[in-house]
Nucleic acid binder design. Structure first.
Lengths: 248, 248
DNA sequence: TCCCCATTGAAACGTTTGTATGATACAAAT
DNA sequence: ATTTGTATCATACAAACGTTTCAATGGGGA
């Protein structure tokens, strides 16, 4: 059966009707979960379609290939977190119409949406695991970067106003630091924190979720607020404390 | 070649003599690189053995299976970074025999070894990529965690002395934050920093490597030094952290 | 009613995967 | 010279992979 020329392509026909969220959506959902659990290479289409109660060929029907499914999964998974962070940033600016928002509020806007989306009543950590996986995968990393770029620029713009003493380069560096700290805390499967804390001490913590967010915000805020870095001149080639360079 | 009685298993025979570093070592080296580049599932044994100029069966000869190769690769890759950080910590303590080392030195001991091992004349970022991959992979994550645990405990112990006002739980949390920030900065393939900084501004940076380390240390030190987190009671309606505790 | 077409289903495709097998080369010990 | 054990090689194998094909299905306009 020869296909008509681009008339009704099932791959792009979803948003047209609007309620076709059946098989395609189930596949996307299952793929999200399994990609996060076992990685993009580790999760097979057979597992995904089985979990989605769909036929194996459905993947190649709704998406062209596994690569396209990965891309679609990333887009659908990243959209909520970007939107939530952007919304939190806007709300933060709205709360302080005349003056600049405090740094703690900005840090909260950066940290909280990801914490809510990952550990809340929502699916558990899948979004974060997906994100971590894409960091190491050059192919998917560009997709993620493209989605996040506007958000990052918005955040750095606001931070630049709050912290005018920092160069934009250093500010961007610290923004990356903040992202890394957030990701690490929320995704790490074996954090040093959990190993160290005694059960009794953990029991006193009323709400671990809120405690994590508060601690993260505290750390990130202080890190962002640090005075500008002054590079030690290498004129005196004195090794830094604890250098102990190992020759190869 | 002197030979002991009993079964000589080639799998455990390497560390005995010490100079048998030929094919087995080449495979380990190639596996390190390819696992980091394409992931544990993405890198095939045929690619690895070809890159190592070894026969395909050599993997199952020196290691029992691909899983064992992954484990061996992780161990050999993690050992240097753990040793380097531990050595840096010891050197830091040695440099201040009578009083406690400054926080910046401790942060440097945490950050610098990984930066040196990843971006120096050494192989590029492979160790970091490996580490990031293991974060998301539950199976390999335990191996990594086991290797890092003594190091983490040592670091947190020292930090606890320098920052006695923090609970051990919060200290461990901030230590994880510091690890996350370090990992993110050193591994990220598409950092916001690189996208934002103008080429001119980057040109002024004499040594980007040293600049990254200094900025990281500055951020981490300030984050660790932040005052203890006070949990805001959720009785208040809106999340308006107005408690802007001025640092000094 | 019929036809159309988007969707689903089962089965097979060719390729690539990790692993296993047996032959062979080589060097030291017997 | 023969034996012995280590190491490397080409090759084979079953399983699993992503992808394709084609028939069956079913509901909505004509």
């Amino acid at each position: 059966m020869p296909r008509k020329s681009g008339a009704k392509d099932p791959i792009v026909a979803t948003s047209a009707t609007g309620d076709e969220t059946d098989t395609r959506e189930r596949i996307l959902h299952a793929a999200n979960r399994l990609f996060a659990e076992r990685g993009f290479d580790g999760a097979t289409l057979r597992e995904i379609t089985e979990a989605a109660r769909a036929n194996l060929a459905a993947v190649n029907y709704y998406f062209r290939s596994k690569d396209e499914l990965i891309r679609s999964t990333l887009e659908s998974a990243l959209k909520p977190i970007v939107a939530a962070r952007l919304e939190a940033l806007k709300a933060c600016e709205r709360a302080y119409p005349d003056r600049l928002p405090p740094l703690e509020s900005l840090a909260d806007a950066l940290v909280r949406p990801m914490a809510e989306l990952s550990s809340g009543e929502n699916r558990d950590r899948l979004l974060l695991l997906l994100q971590v996986r894409t960091i190491a995968q050059a192919a998917t990393n560009s997709v993620v970067a493209d989605h996040f770029r506007p958000l990052h620029e918005r955040f750095i713009d606001v931070l630049q106003k709050v912290l005018p003493n920092l160069s934009r380069a250093e500010l961007a560096l610290r923004y990356d630091c903040a992202r890394g700290a957030t990701l690490q805390i929320l995704v790490d499967l074996a954090p040093a924190a959990q190993l160290v804390v005694s059960p009794a001490e953990r029991a006193t913590t009323i709400d671990r979720h809120e405690w994590l967010i508060a601690g993260l915000v505290q750390f990130v805020s202080a890190g962002l607020r640090a005075p500008p870095t002054v590079l030690r001149q290498p004129t005196t080639r004195k090794k830094a404390p604890g250098a102990a360079t190992k020759p190869r």
